[in-house]
Amino acid sequence: MLGRALKSAVVGLGVGRQHALALLKDPRTELCAIVEHDEVRAQDFVQNYKDQNIQISTFNEVVGCDEIDLISLASFDGDHFHQVMAGLKHSKHMFVEKPLCQTRPELEDIYALWKTSSCALASNLVLRKAPLYIWLKDLISSGALGDIYAFDGDYLYGRVHKIMSGWRSETENYSVMEGGGIHIIDLMLMLTGQKPSEVYSLSNKIATRNTDFQYHDFQSSQFMFESGLIGRVTANFGCIHRHHHVIRVFGTKGTFLYDDAGPRIHWTSDEDKTADFVKEAPLPAEKGVLIPDFIGTIINNDIIESAYQEFDLMSVVLAADEVLNCKKPTRIEYLTC
Score class of each variant (00 low, 15 high):
residue 129 K to Q: 10
residue 254 G to Y: 08
residue 230 I to P: 01
residue 120 A to N: 04
residue 62 V to R: 07
residue 262 G to C: 09
residue 142 S to P: 08
residue 60 N to K: 12
residue 110 I to W: 07
residue 317 V to D: 00
residue 46 V to Q: 09
residue 131 P to K: 06
residue 248 R to Y: 11
residue 95 F to Y: 13
residue 139 L to C: 10
residue 199 V to D: 01
residue 317 V to W: 03
residue 264 R to M: 12
residue 243 H to I: 02
residue 28 R to F: 11
residue 187 L to Q: 10
residue 119 C to H: 08
residue 52 Q to G: 02
residue 201 S to F: 12
residue 66 D to E: 14
residue 89 K to C: 08
residue 191 L to C: 06
residue 260 D to R: 12
residue 115 K to F: 05
residue 132 L to I: 05
residue 155 Y to D: 08
residue 131 P to E: 04
residue 296 G to H: 09
residue 142 S to I: 09
residue 327 K to V: 14
residue 52 Q to Y: 05
residue 332 I to D: 03
residue 3 G to D: 13
residue 49 Y to E: 03
residue 73 L to F: 10
residue 295 I to L: 08
residue 171 T to I: 04
residue 235 A to F: 08
residue 200 Y to V: 15
residue 6 L to C: 08
residue 202 L to H: 08
residue 328 K to I: 14
residue 226 E to G: 00
residue 62 V to F: 06
residue 185 I to K: 03
residue 165 S to Y: 03
residue 211 T to F: 11
residue 97 E to V: 09
residue 171 T to D: 05
residue 1 M to K: 12
residue 209 R to F: 15
residue 255 T to F: 11
residue 125 L to R: 02
residue 26 D to T: 05
residue 156 L to R: 05
residue 301 N to Q: 15
residue 250 F to R: 14
residue 152 D to N: 14
residue 312 D to M: 04
residue 314 M to G: 02
residue 321 D to I: 12
residue 320 A to T: 03
residue 68 I to R: 10
residue 16 G to H: 07
residue 5 A to D: 11
residue 226 E to F: 01
residue 217 D to P: 02
residue 9 A to R: 06
residue 260 D to V: 08
residue 15 V to Q: 07
residue 86 A to I: 06
residue 152 D to M: 06
residue 164 M to P: 04
residue 176 V to D: 04
residue 302 D to S: 09
residue 129 K to P: 05
residue 327 K to A: 14
residue 102 Q to G: 06
residue 324 L to K: 01
residue 35 V to R: 05
residue 180 G to E: 04
residue 209 R to D: 12
residue 127 L to N: 00
residue 109 D to I: 06
residue 301 N to K: 15
residue 181 G to L: 09
residue 300 N to Q: 15
residue 132 L to P: 03
residue 76 F to P: 12
residue 50 K to D: 13
residue 14 G to H: 09
residue 316 V to T: 00
residue 172 E to P: 12
residue 230 I to F: 03
residue 325 N to M: 13
residue 304 I to E: 13
residue 116 T to Y: 03
residue 199 V to H: 01
residue 202 L to S: 11
residue 240 I to V: 15
residue 193 G to V: 02
residue 297 T to R: 02
residue 133 Y to Q: 06
residue 326 C to D: 11
residue 320 A to N: 04
residue 306 S to V: 13
residue 336 T to C: 12
residue 117 S to L: 03
residue 232 R to L: 14
residue 214 Q to C: 14
residue 101 C to R: 00
residue 335 L to Q: 07
residue 2 L to I: 09
residue 117 S to G: 02
residue 9 A to K: 01
residue 265 I to R: 04
residue 32 C to A: 13
residue 312 D to W: 07
residue 192 T to Y: 00
residue 299 I to V: 07
residue 134 I to E: 14
residue 121 L to D: 07
residue 170 E to I: 10
residue 187 L to G: 01
residue 296 G to P: 00
residue 93 H to D: 11
residue 171 T to H: 01
residue 157 Y to T: 05
residue 186 D to R: 00
residue 264 R to H: 05
residue 69 D to A: 05
residue 109 D to A: 15
residue 92 K to L: 02
residue 213 F to P: 02
residue 303 I to K: 15
residue 54 I to D: 02
residue 29 T to R: 02
residue 32 C to V: 15
residue 269 S to M: 14
residue 254 G to F: 09
residue 116 T to E: 14
residue 55 Q to R: 14
residue 301 N to T: 07
residue 318 L to F: 09
residue 215 Y to I: 09
residue 155 Y to G: 02
residue 92 K to H: 08
residue 31 L to P: 00
residue 143 G to D: 00
residue 255 T to Q: 14
residue 50 K to L: 07
residue 254 G to C: 07
residue 169 S to A: 15
residue 307 A to K: 04
residue 112 A to D: 11
